[in-house]
Computed example of a mutant assay.
Amino acid sequence: MLVFWVLAFGSAAVSNILTLRIDAHRYGLDAGTWQIVTNEFTSMAVSLLMLPFLLRACDRWPLHADTWKRRLPLYVLGSIVWCLLHIAGMDLLRLAVFSLMGVRFEPGSLRLQLIYEYLKDVRTFFIVVAVWHLVEWFGRHARGEASLLDAPDEGPPVEPVDRPGRFLVRKLGRDFLVATADIEWAQASGNYVNLRVRGRDYPLRSTLAALEARLDPTVFVRAHRSYLVRLAQVSAIEPLDAGDARLHMADGTVLPCSRRYRESLRSLAAGTDPAPGRT
């Protein structure tokens, strides 16, 4: 994905350089090629440096059908912050390059620069947001998006309905049933929880706390604020100096275990009650 964004921003910068160079020649503008290249690549560099933070925000506060109205104003505010940081960053880089070349850097009117850059930056900002959401949407549907099934479709329920025995996974237009007994662990990811089943992740629209409340606490144990593990899948608990631990899972995966949950998990694994006052 990093290569995609570098190519996207890089190709846009090269295209702008060629266009501006042609305009400078056509209209007799006093703009050297090195100045045009500096202006475009400093803009690209700052955008790429800020990009991981924007993608992280998209992951943390995604726009869905039930959240976009509430979160859209935050994204608009984010576009303004993006623009201000973009201007500050690229102007500092341009000042450094122009100084090395022995040329005075003149950014011009700040008010006009803010208007001019925001008109460009707001498009870039929301194109990135739209691409991220499109990729995430396709990824969820390609991997399979899970939903809870409280009771069997036919016959009497074999367990209380508040302990789901199966999850319905819709993947590329087809429905599959995933047994709760096959889930190895669950990982929080924004508004979703990724259910790990035989090396595959199935996103479930839920919080980790809500999922934990629905599952058997003697079978699924919280190991970290972002992880809920099936106790039977834990093959070893490796203590760390800071009080945390690493969980070695049956498939060879290593997961974090925070100090807050370490003793509780060890007690449950040993078949004893957690010590009083421990969570």
Rank of each mutant, 00 (worst) to 15 (best):
F125N: 07
L100G: 14
M44I: 00
H248A: 11
G139A: 03
H25F: 03
S258A: 10
R166F: 10
M90W: 05
L100F: 09
I127V: 15
G32H: 00
M50H: 03
L20E: 15
D201H: 08
P274G: 12
V103E: 07
G190R: 06
M44A: 07
N191V: 08
D251T: 01
I36T: 13
I115R: 13
R123S: 14
A213C: 00
R163Y: 12
D59M: 04
V129E: 04
M50N: 02
T180I: 03
E212P: 12
A188C: 02
C257I: 03
I237E: 06
D66R: 13
V234N: 04
L204Q: 02
R259C: 07
A151S: 15
V193P: 09
L92C: 09
G173E: 11
L177D: 11
E136Q: 14
A245G: 06
Y192E: 09
L72H: 04
F126D: 00
L228I: 00
D241P: 08
A88V: 14
R214F: 10
P256C: 13
W68C: 04
L2W: 09
R123K: 06
H141V: 09
F105P: 05
T207I: 00
E184F: 01
H224L: 10
A179D: 11
W132H: 14
H133Q: 04
G32Y: 08
A186T: 05
V158W: 10
A88Q: 15
T272Y: 09
L134T: 10
A57L: 11
P156A: 07
E238F: 00
F126P: 12
G10P: 15
R200I: 01
P160F: 08
L148C: 13
L54G: 02
L48V: 01
Y202M: 01
L172C: 05
S79K: 09
R200F: 03
P274F: 04
A88W: 14
A151D: 13
G89K: 11
P156S: 13
S47Y: 01
L149P: 01
L149Y: 05
D66E: 12
S109Y: 13
R200H: 10
L114G: 10
G78Q: 14
L215W: 04
E154M: 11
A188T: 02
A188E: 06
C83E: 03
L92Y: 09
C58R: 02
L29Q: 07
Y227M: 11
A179N: 11
D273H: 09
A188W: 02
A151H: 10
A270S: 08
S79Q: 13
K69G: 15
R21E: 15
A57R: 08
T272F: 02
T19H: 12
R104K: 12
I36A: 08
Q113K: 11
G199E: 03
M44Y: 02
L247H: 03
S15R: 00
F105R: 00
R111T: 14
F105V: 10
A13Y: 12
L240F: 06
L49P: 01
L114Q: 03
N16T: 15
T42S: 09
D244C: 02
V169I: 11
L77Q: 06
Y75K: 09
R166L: 05
Q187Y: 02
A242F: 02
L119R: 14
M101G: 15
L247S: 07
D30H: 12
Q35T: 05
D23L: 05
